[in-house]
Design a protein around this nucleic acid. Structure first.
Lengths: 231, 231
DNA sequence: GCCATAGTTCGATGGTAAGCGAAGCATGAT
DNA sequence: ATCATGCTTCGCTTACCATCGAACTATGGC
């Protein structure tokens, strides 16, 4: 009896329009101030402050004080996963008959899921790493093989980036648009950062859509070729 | 602006304690009448009726009239997935420091996720099928290979069981306790049914826990051996 | 046809919480 | 020190919605 309310509590937190607006805004991956989030959610500053306090108590967002600003971000990959799952279900509802229909083609193709690459491109990255043995999938979780680390080095990603951070660095994240797993965790973030810093793609302002440039598209396809389909 | 409310609406539906109680009860996999659900949720019959109407409008549950009874079940795998994701997050919150701790050992080991096998045993089944090439994982989804169909035949599962049902029969479902995928969809249901009908395991009354018998444990391990870890 | 059971609809009630303005801290700039 | 900015707290109003009793409909059994 005392267990069930937990899920109700979390869902109720997300269930308010203002709070879900805040969470969706944070899904873009960057931390935002209370004022910015108030504007995003379309409510007054005191209201947003109250909502954020509740979300923090619920473990969905985490604050980071910086000077006289207070930045909020999603608290964890898990929190992002919950929002992602709800988004997927809600999107499916909107177009129930248009199965696998291009509800928002750009969003399905490539988007930011909290802090890593999702959508078709995200799945492609994941599959490509797995197919080449760079990423090994085990019941205990995902791990980068030695060859994988070597490959990552080519993107400026090395073990030194993960010093002091406790594993797992690689996380599996279920993608609603492709219905397949993609790479999350700190490693997923590192790859997204690399992709952005090379100018292959950039986040579209105010959205979760990731826009690839023409050369970026080509470079990405070369770096992460589609995995051969085993039959 | 008009997109965000969708997720809020769904979350708000789940956010009510009575409704989440109903949904959790339905996660056990069997359809229940309005009266039964009212009792499960601890509310009066009229209240339950009202809640169920809302859940139905929200696409979370689906009714099935049978005589003067009205049975409700979860509307889809996707709906079950959302509840599962929320359960996982809520469970993680309760024991934030006890990472991967045995919050409920039996539940982590084997449980029913809507209509298929989840938990460690569910992951084992999935991994075992994949490792032997019976289940092939592709970006487009999961499919049973010819050898897989042959293997399934040994469990009394044949293509004839899926006549008239439109694909996909196999669905990937993310497991919160093991953080790995397991087999859902009609195929997942078929395997669970086979396991139960052979007496290897049975659902514990009123819970989602699946209790394996001693011989069932052995038979399951023989039929779905742990996949060799590639390294 | 009649009663019993299952479920729905209606109306009234009450609790909960979102929202905002105003006042109160806290931090940074001048 | 003084002011400005960013955020929080307080008090209040308002709106929503869960809940239940009672009346109503539908289905089945006799």
């Amino acid at each position: 009896m005392a267990e069930s309310p937990n899920i109700a509590r979390v869902a109720a937190l997300i269930g308010d329009p203002a709070r879900s607006g805040i969470l969706l805004a944070l899904m873009r991956g960057q931390a935002l101030t209370v004022s910015e989030l108030a504007a995003e959610a379309g409510v007054g500053l005191p209201t947003a402050s109250s909502h954020l306090a509740q979300l923090e108590a619920g473990g969905l967002v985490a604050p980071r004080k910086q000077g006289r600003h207070k930045y909020f971000a999603l608290a964890s990959e898990e929190a992002a996963g919950v929002i992602e799952a709800l988004s997927g279900f809600a999107a499916g509802l909107a177009a129930p008959k248009t199965a696998t229909g291009p509800r928002d083609p750009a969003l399905r193709k490539a988007r930011v899921c909290y802090n890593h690459l999702a959508g078709d491109r995200g799945v492609q990255l994941y599959d490509s790493l797995v197919a080449r043995g760079y990423l090994s999938v085990a019941p205990s979780g995902l791990t980068l093989s030695p060859e994988g680390w070597e490959f990552a080095r080519g993107f400026g990603i090395g073990p030194e980036d993960f010093l002091g951070k406790r594993p797992p660095h690689c996380r599996e994240c279920l993608d609603w648009s492709a219905r397949r797993s993609h790479l999350g965790g700190r490693m997923g973030r590192a790859f997204l950062t690399a992709i952005e810093s090379r100018g292959w793609a950039h986040r579209m302002r105010g959205t979760r859509t990731l826009a690839f440039t023409a050369e970026g598209e080509r470079a990405f396809a070369a770096a992460f070729p589609h995995a051969a389909r085993g039959g």
